[in-house]
Amino acid sequence: MKFLFKQPTFLLGVLFIGIMLLSSFIHALFFDSVIPKTPYVYSSENVLDRAAPFAPLDHTILGTDMAGNHLLFYIIQGAKYTILGTFVIAFMSFALALIIGTPMGFYQQKPWFKGVEQTISVLYFIPASLIAYNFLEPLLIEPFEGFPTTLAYRIFVEVLVIGLLLVPPAAILIANEVSELLKREYIQSSRVLGGRKWHLFRRHLLPHLRGRFIQLISIQSIQALLILTHLGVFEMFFGGTDRSFGLGAEPPTPFTYDWASIVGMYYDTIMTNLPWLLIAPMTFLVLFVMSIIGISYGIQKHLQSTDRTQTIPFQPQSKESFSKEKSFEFIEKRAE
C-alpha cells in the first residue's frame, strides 16, 4: 500500500478527489453551504464601479454568474454529490455485475446464455442516459404541486436506477473474461484434481482478474459520470430539478449543484459570451475523469510490479559471467 503512493498518477488523482471532497464537506459543515454573492462592486463610497457578471480572477477566482453568485462555491458545494454519487453508482454496479457475471462465466457454454446476451445487447442501440431520463422523469422533474418526496429518497432511487442500467454490459464482460480464463490448462488440471467452483474462483480466477476489475471499476465510474452529465444537460439534475411555474418563472435550478447540473443550469448563457460559466464546471468534470483514469492506471502499474501470477522471466546469464570462465582453451593446457 505504501508503494502505491509512489505512482504519480495515483497520487495526483487521489489528491484532486481528496481536496475536492474535503473542501466540500468543510463548506457544508462549517459554513452551512452558503454561496457568497457580489452583485455590485463599489470603487469608493457609494460610487458604483461594476456589476455582475464578473470574469474569472476579476473579483473572484472562478468568476460569478449574472446574479453575482460565486461559481467556485457552487463547484465546491456540488463536489461531494458528483464524486460520491459517481463512485457509489460505479461500485454498486460493479458488485452486482461481479455477483451475476461470474456464475454466468461458468455456464457460458449453455445455450440459454446466448439469448440473454442478445436481449441485453439492446442496450447497444438505446443509450443508457436516454433510458434513465425517460424512466426517472416523473420522479426527478418537479411537478406543479411540488415534490412529494425527500431529496435523500430521490438521490437513492436515481443512484439505484443508473447503477442497475450499468450492470448488464459489465456482467457480460466479466462472464466473457471468466469463461476465457476457465479454458486455460492449469484450471483444467485443477478441475481434474477435484477443485470446486468456489476454489477455482478464489485461487485461480481472482488473482488474474484483479487488474481487470480495477479497469472495470474505472470504466463504470466514467460511464456513471457520463450518464449524470447527460442528465444534467437535459436539465434533469442530480437529486431533482427545482422548477418554478407561472409568469416570469426562473429557469430550473438544481438542489445539489453537482457539476453536471451546473453545466445544465448555465447552458442558456451560451449566447451571452460568458464562457467561464460553462468552462469551469466542465474543467472540473474533465479533471475528475482524469483522476479516475490516473488512479486506475497507478493501481494497475502497482499490481503489475507486485504480481505473483506472472512467472519470473528467464534471465540469461550476463556477459560478465560468461567472460569470467574461459570460453576457449587448449586441451593440452587443461591437461597440465
Binding site: T119, V122, L123, N134, P138, P143, T149, V157
Partner: peptide
C-alpha cells in the same frame, strides 16, 4: 429478442410516478 428488449424499455416509464415505483 431485441424488439422485446426495446418494448420493455419503452414501457418502463409507466412504472415510475412522482412518489416512486
Amino acid at each position: 429478442y431485441l424488439m422485446i428488449g426495446i418494448f420493455l424499455i419503452s414501457i418502463s416509464p409507466l412504472f415510475m410516478t412522482s412518489v416512486g415505483l
